[in-house]
């Protein structure tokens, strides 16, 4: 073996060692929460947080699940996120059809408008929305959150879809027009099916973003029976003095749905993160 080969091997091992050390730091919180969610409080007290659980003790998880009625929280989050994704895509599609395909007059200004709406801090809408919701009888309903976030997400969706639609092949539109297609048919039968891949990226984005929201849902949903998963878990942290293992069980229940989404949607997401950032 010559010297440069040895050096190269050494460099490779050193690189792997450093990267792995960083990986351990990054994944440590996930691992530590998981192992301690399956411990008995006595085990935690005597063996500390780093030992592996003696058995699969699930009482902590079950306890917390029942205490917050986690099934109800999962249903709330799912209903809200799916509704927002569907309604948000509907609105974005209509907007982008007018702006990107129809190229209505002043579309640049409309686009700037939508982009601005997308970046406004929710704090600047919170009190009026809270007040409206109260006076319309929508306060503390899932519908209020669905309406607000469908519109907020559609602002981003419009921006992204319009830039996709503005490069939509004109020949296809021409051909459809010659075949006597009207605008509604053009939207439903031509533009929507062809842009399905982009729409599925948007669906995943809207779903996950809505699932992860905190500030406005907290203000609009006051009773626990209407709250979402992150909201219920985060609010409960402050209220109850939970022991270490129940606490980690609650964190694990907050993490799990997101890991499932990540595994399910991984390809769409990695495609989307990079596309959404620069486009």
């Amino acid at each position: 073996m010559n010297a440069s080969l040895v050096l190269e091997r050494f460099n490779k091992s050193l690189a792997l060692l450093l990267l792995t050390a960083l990986l351990i730091v990054m994944l440590f919180p996930f691992a530590i929460v998981t192992i301690n969610a399956f411990k008995t409080p006595a085990e935690y007290a005597s063996n500390g947080p780093l030992s592996l659980p003696g058995g699969l003790y699930t009482d902590g998880l079950r306890d917390f699940w029942d205490r917050v009625d986690f099934t109800n929280k999962l249903i709330n989050s799912t209903v809200i996120s799916v509704s927002v994704a569907v309604a948000g895509i509907g609105l974005s599609l209509l907007n982008a059809f007018a702006l990107g395909i129809g190229r209505v007059r002043g579309r640049v200004w409309f686009l700037i408008f939508f982009l601005m709406a997308n970046t406004l801090p929710q704090e600047a809408l919170a009190y009026p929305l809270y007040y409206f919701a109260k006076s319309l009888g929508l306060y503390n309903t899932r519908l209020s959150v669905i309406i607000v976030f469908s519109v907020i997400q559609s602002a981003f969706g419009t921006y992204l879809l319009t830039s996709v639609f503005s490069t939509f092949p004109r020949e296809i539109l021409e051909a459809a027009r010659i075949d006597g297609c009207n605008k509604v048919q053009l939207l439903l039968r031509i533009v929507t099916p062809i842009s399905r891949p982009t729409l599925s990226v948007l669906f995943v984005f809207f779903f996950i973003w809505t699932w992860n929201e905190f500030f406005l849902p907290m203000i609009l949903l006051v009773s626990t029976s209407n709250q979402t998963v992150p909201l219920a878990i985060a609010v409960l942290q402050g209220q109850h003095n939970m022991d270490a293992t129940t606490s980690s069980a609650s964190a694990l229940l907050g993490i799990l749905p997101c890991v499932v989404f990540f595994l399910l949607f991984q390809r769409t997401l990695t495609k989307g993160i990079t596309a959404g950032s620069v486009k």
Partner: peptide, 8 residues
């Protein structure tokens, strides 16, 4: 969700 990261 940032809230869950906070809880962890």
């Amino acid at each position: 969700p940032v809230a869950i990261a906070g809880v962890v």
